[in-house]
Amino acid sequence: MAKRFQIQQMPGFRTIAVVTFVLLYMPIFLLVIYSFNAGTSIAIWEGFSWRWYVSAWDNQQVQEATIRSLVIAFWASAISTTLAVLAALATTRTRKFKGQAAVFAMINQPLMVPEIVTAVALLIFFAMIKVATGYTGLMYLVIAHTAFCIPFAYLPIRARLIGMDLALEQAAADLYAPPFRVFTRITLPQLWPGILAGAMLAFVISLDDVVITEFVKSAGQDTLPTYMLGQLRRVVTPEVNAISTVLLGISVTMVVAFTALSKLKT
C-alpha cells in the first residue's frame, strides 16, 4: 500500500508551524502581560499592577463607549439572529424556488463585499437619511451592525436546520400539529443551540467592528474599538491593553461557548 501523504513529515514543517504560532500568539501574549504593567510604557516592564484596569474602569469615556458597544451589539445580534432564523427557514424549509442560490449569495454578501465598500455605501446612504429626517441617534449603527452580522448568525442556524431530521417535523404534522406549532414545539427546541451560537457569533462580530462603525458613527458615538483607535492616535498607555484584554476574555469565552453549542446534540 502506498504511504499516505503526511504533512507533518515534510521538511521544515515544524519550523513553519512554530514561527506561525509565535507570530500569531506572541503579540497577544505581550498585550495581556503589559496590561498588568505598573509603569506607563507599553514596552518597558516595571512590575505587576491592576492600575490600568482601575484607570479604564474609572474612565468615563471608556464607560460610555463600553455601554454603547454593548447596546449596539445586543440589538444588532438580536435583530440579525431573528432575521437569520427567518432566512434560514426560507432557504431550507421551502420548496426549491428559482433564484434560491442567488438569495443564498445575497444573504452572505457581507462576507464577500469588502467591508470598506459597505462602509462608504452606508455612510452616503445614512447621510442622505440624516439630512431628510434630522435623526442622528444610535439606530444607524444598530442597522449597520445588523446588516453585517446577518451572515454570521445565519450560517450556524442554517447548518443546524440542514442537519435536522425532516421526518420529525413531518411526524409532528402527522400528529395534528399545524405549521406554526410544528415550528414552536419541534423545530425551535432543537434549533436553539444553533440560534444561540449564531447570536453569540453576531454579538462578538458587532463588538469587534471598527471599519463600518468608524464611517457610520456620528460625533460622540464612539464604541469601544473606535475609542481605542482614537486613543492610539494620541498617547498610548497600557489602559488600551487592559481594555483589549477584557475584550479578549469576552470573545474567548463566547467562542468556547459557541463551539460547545455547535457540538451539542439534542
Partner: peptide, 20 residues
C-alpha cells in the same frame, strides 16, 4: 387536506421520535 387535518397517523421507518 394537509397532513395535520387527516385522521391518519404514521409509524415512520426511522421512528422519528422527538428527541427533546
Amino acid at each position: 387536506l394537509p397532513p395535520y387535518k387527516r385522521p391518519v397517523n404514521t409509524v415512520f421507518q426511522s421512528y422519528a421520535l422527538f428527541p427533546h
